[in-house]
Computed example of a mutant assay.
Amino acid sequence: MSRRKFLILLGAAAVSACAPPLHTPPGFMEGLDAPYTLASGDRLRIIVFGQDNLSNSYAVDGSGRVSLPLIGPTPAGGMTTTQLERAIEAKLRNGYLREPRVSVEVEQYRPFFVLGEVTTAGQFPYVNAMTVQTAIAIAGGFSPRALRTQADITRQIGGRPVSATVPITFPVRPGDTIVVRERWF
């Protein structure tokens, strides 16, 4: 009887060893508390107080710029909304307005991507407070062969793509790429 228990425990240990370990590189967790930085694909609501013709919805283009009337293309990629407000105010103060006051808010975040063992892989609109699990649900759920306990996330940190293996309760940020791997058993 004890030999049978030993073989069962050995088999269980072998199966559990097949699951890849979670791996989070340095700096990956720190990005969760950092202020949101703008990038290509974000849509912004920019309000210039007292200037209705300048206030509108603007997209951050592929080169990370926002193009406003009068001042033209303004770098926005990698900036927070507060930093962009100050940059636009400085440009408007340069010969256009005396005391410009600008407000910038994210109207629509850039999309995230889900690949791998999900029902419908693709690009999806970001929703606040999203986790890997909710992102997978938006993608139609797991496929029958999916590894359901963890996923790989790739995100831009410091202008470079960084990948990590995380649990499905891990928070997702706009622009992340989530890959659900196939389980072995």
Rank of each mutant, 00 (worst) to 15 (best):
L97M: 11
G141V: 08
Q83D: 15
G64L: 00
Q156F: 05
V60P: 00
V60R: 00
F49L: 10
F170A: 11
V118S: 02
E182H: 09
P144D: 12
S103N: 13
P21N: 06
A135F: 02
A14K: 03
G11C: 13
F124R: 11
A17N: 08
P26L: 06
A135M: 09
G64E: 05
A34R: 13
A17M: 14
R65D: 01
P73K: 10
V102N: 01
L9D: 07
Y58F: 06
P25S: 11
T169M: 09
V66C: 07
R181F: 10
P26I: 06
E85C: 04
I138K: 10
E99W: 09
L22Y: 05
S63H: 15
P26S: 10
T82S: 14
R43V: 05
V172P: 07
T154P: 04
D176V: 05
G159D: 11
G11Y: 14
F124G: 02
T177Y: 11
A59G: 05
P111C: 06
A59W: 00
R43F: 04
I168N: 10
R173Y: 07
Y36W: 03
T74N: 07
S16C: 15
V60F: 04
A14N: 07
L115H: 05
V48A: 02
V66A: 06
G62D: 04
V172M: 13
F185D: 05
I157D: 04
Y109M: 12
T169L: 14
G159V: 08
E117H: 03
F113P: 07
G64S: 06
R65W: 08
P100R: 12
R183A: 14
S57E: 08
H23A: 14
V166T: 06
L115P: 00
A151H: 01
V118C: 02
D61M: 09
R110L: 04
A59P: 02
R86M: 15
G27A: 12
I136S: 02
I157W: 02
G95F: 15
Y96W: 12
G31C: 07
R160N: 06
F28T: 00
R101M: 13
A13C: 15
I157K: 01
G95W: 15
F170K: 09
P25K: 08
E89R: 11
T134Y: 02
V102H: 06
V48P: 01
R43Y: 05
L10Q: 15
F112N: 01
V114I: 08
V114T: 00
A139V: 04
L70A: 07
A151Y: 08
G175N: 08
L68H: 08
